[in-house]
Nucleic acid binder design. Sequence first.
DNA 1: CTTTGGATCGTCT
DNA 2: GACGATCCAAAGG
Length: 194
Amino acid sequence: MARATLAADPLEVAPFLLGKLLVHGRREARIVEVEAYRGESDPASHAYRGRTARNATMFGRAGLLYVYFTYGMHWCANVVCGEQGAAGAVLLRALEPVAGLEEMTAARAARRRPGSALRERDLCRGPGNLTVALGITKQHDGVDLCDPASPVRLLDDGAPVVEAGRVASGPRVGIKRAIDVEWRFWVAGSRYVS
DNA sequence: CTTTGGATCGTCT
DNA sequence: GACGATCCAAAGG
């Protein structure tokens, strides 16, 4: 995907990312839910108090993958956006599985109680779940999603979402600061949103 | 369907 | 030393 389209305000990039494809090997999934984090001007952002070892990738160029660890057991994936040094990012919250469903199911099942039911709609539902399904971990922090040689990539197959008027929005979840703004975006009507 | 408690550890105060 | 950009399963309605 073109890097130039990501070098903008996270509030613009977030809805634009809906419908795009995240690819890792044979595993492919379509983005259906995201949240915008505006960096140093956003009290809920990891970058609000400036640059640290953990959030360093957020300060890099647009198109990088920012992966962080939280709650002692979950990895979350973000698309870095904005101008160089702006520390904007878009958190991926839910994806619609497209290809490699067997690999995704195996990866998810390995972390669950044996025999518990796992439906297709839940494979990539939730920020901590989609990274497991796609096999994204700390080692992918800083990977360039726009580089054809990268293991993890962002592709645009032209599926219309914004163009079709299918964008819904609401407050971000799981945060305690800046809960008044509606910076969470999802594909209206999609059963894969969280 | 909703609510609730437990798991688990890197990061920053 | 406290707290997360969370998830799961069990229990109750």
